Simulated scan of single mutants.
Amino acid sequence: MEKKSNVDIGIGVNLMDVVEGQVLRLKSGQTGKITENMGDGQWVEMRFDGEDEPRLVHSQDIDALV
């Protein structure tokens, strides 16, 4: 019988409550600053050190508010 694992749906941070300027840590360990909250509870735009352009990040990729 195959062992089943839990599904991580990335609900550790309520994206309806985060605002521009706050820092989030991704599950990859990378941290970045929120530049825009789309207001849909699923997506935020973040800027990461060493990157020229901000990028969209989905809630499933977010680990915690730093």
Results as ranks from 00 to 15, higher is better:
residue 5 S to L: 14
residue 35 T to K: 14
residue 57 V to I: 15
residue 14 N to Q: 10
residue 32 G to E: 08
residue 3 K to E: 09
residue 4 K to V: 06
residue 11 I to G: 14
residue 47 R to H: 10
residue 33 K to W: 00
residue 37 N to D: 04
residue 62 I to A: 04
residue 10 G to C: 10
residue 25 R to K: 14
residue 9 I to T: 11
residue 31 T to R: 15
residue 7 V to W: 05
residue 25 R to W: 05
residue 18 V to Q: 02
residue 32 G to C: 08
residue 5 S to E: 12
residue 31 T to N: 06
residue 10 G to V: 05
residue 6 N to G: 06
residue 24 L to K: 01
residue 22 Q to F: 01
residue 1 M to D: 12
residue 31 T to D: 06
residue 41 G to M: 07
residue 11 I to S: 06
residue 8 D to P: 00
residue 40 D to G: 08
residue 39 G to N: 11
residue 38 M to H: 11
residue 57 V to A: 03
residue 45 E to D: 08
residue 21 G to L: 09
residue 26 L to H: 09
residue 48 F to A: 07
residue 55 R to V: 14
residue 45 E to C: 03
residue 27 K to H: 14
residue 46 M to L: 07
residue 14 N to P: 02
residue 6 N to L: 08
residue 51 E to K: 15
residue 14 N to S: 15
residue 58 H to D: 05
residue 41 G to F: 03
residue 32 G to P: 03
residue 55 R to E: 10
residue 42 Q to S: 03
residue 1 M to W: 13
residue 3 K to M: 10
residue 40 D to V: 04
residue 44 V to K: 00
residue 66 V to T: 09
residue 15 L to H: 01
residue 4 K to Q: 11
residue 48 F to C: 04
residue 65 L to M: 12
residue 58 H to C: 01
residue 16 M to G: 02
residue 44 V to S: 01
residue 60 Q to S: 11
residue 48 F to L: 08
residue 4 K to R: 13
residue 47 R to S: 13
residue 45 E to S: 12
residue 40 D to S: 04
residue 28 S to T: 15
residue 38 M to T: 07
residue 41 G to D: 06
residue 20 E to W: 00
residue 40 D to N: 15
residue 4 K to F: 05
residue 36 E to Q: 12
residue 62 I to P: 02
residue 34 I to S: 00
residue 39 G to D: 10
residue 23 V to R: 15
residue 45 E to N: 12
residue 42 Q to P: 00
residue 60 Q to C: 06
residue 7 V to M: 07
residue 31 T to V: 12
residue 61 D to I: 04
residue 47 R to L: 07
residue 39 G to R: 14
residue 29 G to W: 15
residue 34 I to C: 02
residue 44 V to M: 02
residue 28 S to Q: 08
residue 37 N to L: 01
residue 60 Q to Y: 07
residue 40 D to A: 08
residue 21 G to Y: 10
residue 32 G to F: 07
residue 50 G to V: 00
residue 26 L to N: 03
residue 12 G to S: 12
residue 54 P to S: 11
residue 27 K to N: 10
